[in-house]
Design a protein around this nucleic acid. Structure first.
Lengths: 109, 109
DNA sequence: TGAACATATGAGCAATCGTTCATATGTTAA
DNA sequence: TTAACATATGAACGATTGCTCATATGTTCA
């Protein structure tokens, strides 16, 4: 008979957050899991930037950047304001920086 | 003529980490970007577990869990030890917990 | 109003990802 | 050695993802 871990499972199971929360966590990190989006967030680290400046910086099309900004905004990682024709994006809050900082620490240990 | 941001770009550009590091950062977060892997890491939060216990807990096949553990191990997020036929996995270090904690904070703000 | 600019968006396509299934490897005990 | 167990692995398939291209929306200025 395969080995038994009923007791362990009962305990760990009771400590697990709800499935929906775990799903949301995964979805959040999925947003961080793309180099383009990481670059965008790094670019916004110090100051806001408009879409075309980000596109220039990363040497990518305006469309590609715009699509990614939409993803970042849906995850509440960036916010934007309009000034005439231009739309400026900035990091939404400090979580972005601390999450990236933790990741940075891990890979550079 | 489209608007100019040469000065800004020069500055932001000089502050950007190397491409390879940004790639590694994205790759790291990609590993966190899956609910199954998040669940595994949460399960290992307190104590080590063997593969079949994790599979039981998450109600998934041994194979699926094994594949995901391989991904987690490649990213240095979990470590393992053998005891007879059984292989026990545990979190590799505290970074895992702090990264997840930061993400948790963001979604529950 | 119309032209130029800045950004957003939808469809489509190649690439990547997570699972399943079958099977291989490694360990223990009889 | 053989059977049973625990885990790992490779191929394959459907689903998701990130980009491109064409075009739409929104704003300013003449």
């Amino acid at each position: 008979m395969p080995h038994n871990h009923e007791e362990l499972l009962k305990h760990v199971s009771s400590e697990m957050p709800a499935d929906e929360l775990l799903q949301d966590l995964g979805d959040l990190f999925k947003v961080f899991g793309d180099t383009t989006r990481i670059k965008i967030m790094y670019a916004l680290h110090e100051d806001e930037m408009c879409v075309c400046a980000i596109a220039d910086l990363l040497n990518m099309t305006q469309s590609a950047i715009s699509h990614q900004l939409k993803v970042l905004k849906a995850a509440n990682l960036v916010a934007s304001r309009r000034e005439g024709k231009t739309i400026y994006y900035r990091l939404a809050d400090e979580h972005v920086k601390s999450i990236i900082a933790q990741g940075y620490e891990h890979i550079t240990e």
